[in-house]
Structure formats: C-alpha cells, structure tokens
Amino acid sequence: MRSYALAIAVAMLVSALYAFQNSQEVLVKFFSWERTLPQGVWEVLIFAAGGVLMWLVSLFALMESRAKLVKQLKEKDKRIKELETEKESLIRAIGETKKTYGLGEEPSSKVDPAAKDETQQVENEIKKEE
C-alpha cells in the first residue's frame, strides 16, 4: 500500500511541476461551457479525471469477476456436499454388505491353529530353499 501512496505522491509532484511551468492561459470550450484556465492546470485536471475514470472502470470489472468467482465457489461447494452425501451412502452400503455376508470379522479368527502351523512350515521350507 505504501508503494501506491509513493507513486501517487510522485505523480502529484510531477503534475505540480508541469502545471507551474505551463502557466499561460487557455480558453477551454465544451458544448456551451467556456472556461479560461492555465494550460498546466487544465491538463493536470484532465489527466486526473482520466485516472479516476479508469479506476472506476477497473473497480466495476473487479466486482464483476468477484461475482463470477463467488458463483463458481458456491457451485463447487454444492458439488462437494453432493459427493460427501454419496460417499456416506456408499460407506453405509459397504457396512451393510459386510454385516449381511459376515465379512466384518478378521480372517485370522476363522483360521484354525493347525492350518496356521502348516502355513508356517511351508513358509519356512520356502525360505530354506532360497
């Protein structure tokens, strides 16, 4: 923010120097309006008016793009909520399926100890062969 203030201060200083150096009177006519002003003051006023006009245009463009981004954000939030709802229903369906088919138990609890011993022996033999 300080850089903007510095830029404005420098522009004002240069404009004041320009207006001071161009002090001859100029008749300005616009439609039925007539005014006599020093040339430098007139040009600095026109420059400032152009700057204000461009600032207003950029402000409206910023508001328009912000509105567009807010709309996109709302759409994405809605989509996220839909996906979370779908995820929850899938998790519930998987849980119900496990309960129905008895898949919720640990496989080690279904294996009898004799089969475990045989598996251990086979694994040991494979390790010895390597």
Rank of each mutant, 00 (worst) to 15 (best):
K76E: 13
Q39M: 10
V70Q: 13
V10C: 05
V44W: 00
K110G: 00
I94F: 05
K78S: 13
R2F: 08
K76S: 12
E105R: 06
Q121R: 12
I46V: 12
E129F: 10
E86L: 08
S109Y: 07
K99N: 15
L62E: 07
Q39R: 15
A93V: 00
S58P: 01
L83Y: 05
W42R: 04
S89T: 07
L17H: 03
Q21Y: 07
Y4F: 10
V10R: 14
W33M: 07
L53W: 06
V41T: 12
E86S: 09
G95M: 03
E82D: 08
P113C: 01
F30P: 01
G50R: 13
E130L: 14
F47N: 14
V14S: 05
S58C: 12
E64W: 08
D117K: 09
E118I: 05
F20N: 10
E129Y: 12
R66E: 09
P38T: 11
A5E: 09
E129H: 11
R2G: 08
P38H: 06
V111F: 02
R2P: 03
T85N: 15
F31I: 11
Q21N: 08
V57S: 07
E123R: 09
M63P: 01
T97K: 08
F30I: 11
A115Y: 02
V122K: 12
L56Y: 11
G95L: 05
A19M: 02
P107D: 07
I126E: 10
G51S: 03
G40P: 00
G95E: 09
I91K: 11
E118N: 03
S89E: 14
R66I: 03
V26G: 02
L6G: 02
Q21I: 04
S108Y: 05
V28Q: 03
W42K: 04
E88D: 13
P107W: 08
T97M: 08
K99E: 14
K81C: 05
R92C: 06
K128G: 00
E123Q: 11
T100N: 13
S58K: 07
F60R: 11
E86A: 13
N22P: 01
V111D: 02
E96L: 06
E123G: 03
V122Q: 09
M1G: 15
A114P: 00
A16G: 00
Q24L: 06
K87L: 11
S108K: 09
V28D: 04
E96G: 02
G51D: 01
V70K: 14
L27Q: 12
E86W: 01
K81F: 04
D117E: 13
E43N: 08
A5L: 10
L59M: 14
Q121G: 02
A114V: 01
F47T: 15
S58F: 13
N22K: 07
A7N: 05
I80P: 00
S3G: 03
L69E: 15
W55L: 14
A61P: 02
N124A: 15
V52W: 10
I91N: 08
A67W: 05
G50P: 00
F31K: 15
P38D: 14
A7Q: 06
T100E: 15
E43A: 04
Q24P: 00
Y4S: 03
E88K: 14
G102K: 04
S32C: 06
W55Q: 08
A11F: 04
L83Q: 06
E106R: 07
S108H: 04
L90W: 05
S65V: 12
G50W: 11
I91Q: 13
A11H: 03
K99F: 04
V57G: 03
